[in-house]
Simulated scan of single mutants.
Amino acid sequence: MIRILSMNTDSKIALITVTKKAKELAKVIKLKLGAGDIYTTSKLCEKGTIEISPSLSEMTGELFKQYDTLIFIMATGIVVRMIAPYLQDKFKDPAILVIDEEAKNVISLLSGHIGGANQMTHKLSSLLDANPVITTSTDVNSKAALDNIAKSIDGYIEHFRETVKDINYRLVHEGKIGLYQEEDYRLDTRGFTLLDSLENLEALEKVIYITHKKRIDSPSDKIIKLIPRNLVIGIGCRKDTNKQLLEDSVNHFLEHYNIDTHAIKCLASIDVKAHEKAIIKLAEKLELPFEIVSRAEIEKIEHLFEKSEFVKKNIGVYSVAEPVAYLLSGGNLWIKKHKYQGITFAIGRIKL
């Protein structure tokens, strides 16, 4: 399978050390995680490690730009001083963890929810048989956090910062927050009131509604939409399709099925369309990856879908939109082929 502009889902991890013992622990962590770049001083640098240069402070600034997770194996005080000049906010900062060189404690220092520091802290603590140190309010009060839920389904919430802050505050202070989901997502819902419908909401302060829908039926102003980003749009089209026609067609398609554009994970097509300007332009406008599936991959499963001799003659396979959506969603075709003027769409839904 060929992919163009594919989404990077691999977490980039840096392990920062300044003592020999810490460096050896970093090697153990890298082995257990199966990932990570080890940074250490010039005196301790060896094959498989990267030299800290020109200084720990300046290197920290560079690591903030390059990595999703920074694991410092040293004293917390040093780490606080090093990261202070580079902090922005929890929506941009990488996850910061601190581990003592005896591996007794793993501390989630920064970006516990959005950055994933809390999750990594639990994982490392388990791997090292260490004590996890987590201080975020929702966690210490054994409550789920809205930002964690959103992250687990790559979800979109309008006014994200303000909404997350408000909902998490209410949860910590025993507020009644409802949660209604149209699918069975595997979520941490501690502290939420789970709902079977969007009726009888009087006793609730707010309701989180997990949905792909652009429009919802309920008139209640308590409802906050959380849109999971897990839909793949498979596209088939004629060569040199008009850009505006493709854009208008996909808008009509999404409107017809009442799908919010924030629910789209990527656009996708066959390798023959890798340079189709209309699809590339649409992906750029929607700020989405454009992924490509090879004809060889499609040939393996095209018998599952409606065949077109015209498509076979011109492209080499019997169909495009459905098999592409099927393959990139892990075999879960959600909406079958929908035809426009020389354009076809289908949607696959990635299971979360």
Score class of each variant (00 low, 15 high):
residue 48 G to C: 01
residue 182 E to I: 09
residue 59 M to I: 00
residue 10 D to G: 12
residue 118 N to F: 06
residue 166 D to F: 02
residue 199 E to N: 11
residue 187 L to S: 07
residue 47 K to I: 15
residue 48 G to P: 00
residue 129 D to C: 13
residue 78 I to T: 04
residue 175 G to H: 06
residue 72 F to N: 00
residue 100 D to R: 08
residue 206 K to V: 14
residue 160 F to A: 14
residue 154 D to T: 07
residue 142 S to Q: 15
residue 257 Y to A: 05
residue 233 I to N: 00
residue 132 P to Y: 15
residue 114 I to M: 09
residue 284 E to H: 08
residue 307 K to V: 05
residue 87 L to R: 01
residue 115 G to Y: 07
residue 157 I to S: 03
residue 1 M to G: 15
residue 335 I to C: 06
residue 8 N to P: 03
residue 27 K to H: 15
residue 116 G to L: 00
residue 170 R to K: 14
residue 270 I to W: 01
residue 158 E to H: 10
residue 55 S to K: 05
residue 136 T to G: 14
residue 118 N to Y: 07
residue 304 L to S: 10
residue 238 R to S: 07
residue 20 K to I: 04
residue 131 N to V: 13
residue 334 W to L: 12
residue 208 I to C: 10
residue 234 G to T: 09
residue 251 N to M: 12
residue 187 L to M: 07
residue 24 E to W: 02
residue 283 A to I: 05
residue 58 E to W: 12
residue 188 D to A: 03
residue 70 L to S: 04
residue 172 V to K: 09
residue 235 I to R: 05
residue 299 E to S: 15
residue 98 V to G: 01
residue 174 E to D: 14
residue 258 N to A: 12
residue 22 A to L: 04
residue 258 N to Y: 13
residue 288 L to A: 09
residue 179 L to Y: 01
residue 186 R to P: 02
residue 76 T to W: 07
residue 152 S to M: 12
residue 219 P to E: 14
residue 94 P to A: 08
residue 214 K to Y: 14
residue 333 L to R: 05
residue 150 A to Y: 02
residue 177 I to M: 04
residue 290 F to H: 10
residue 119 Q to V: 02
residue 90 K to Q: 02
residue 312 K to H: 14
residue 113 H to Q: 05
residue 300 K to A: 10
residue 316 G to N: 01
residue 246 L to C: 07
residue 127 L to R: 03
residue 271 D to Q: 11
residue 39 Y to A: 08
residue 205 E to T: 08
residue 174 E to Y: 05
residue 196 D to S: 14
residue 103 A to M: 04
residue 240 D to H: 15
residue 227 I to T: 15
residue 261 T to C: 09
residue 201 L to N: 06
residue 16 I to N: 10
residue 255 E to W: 08
residue 173 H to C: 06
residue 32 K to I: 01
residue 88 Q to D: 04
residue 44 L to T: 03
residue 186 R to C: 08
residue 258 N to Q: 12
residue 95 A to R: 08
residue 237 C to W: 06
residue 35 A to M: 12
residue 129 D to I: 11
residue 171 L to N: 13
residue 44 L to G: 08
residue 33 L to Y: 10
residue 36 G to Q: 14
residue 257 Y to G: 11
residue 247 E to W: 04
residue 303 H to K: 09
residue 138 T to F: 02
residue 221 D to N: 13
residue 86 Y to C: 01
residue 128 L to P: 11
residue 328 L to G: 03
residue 27 K to L: 06
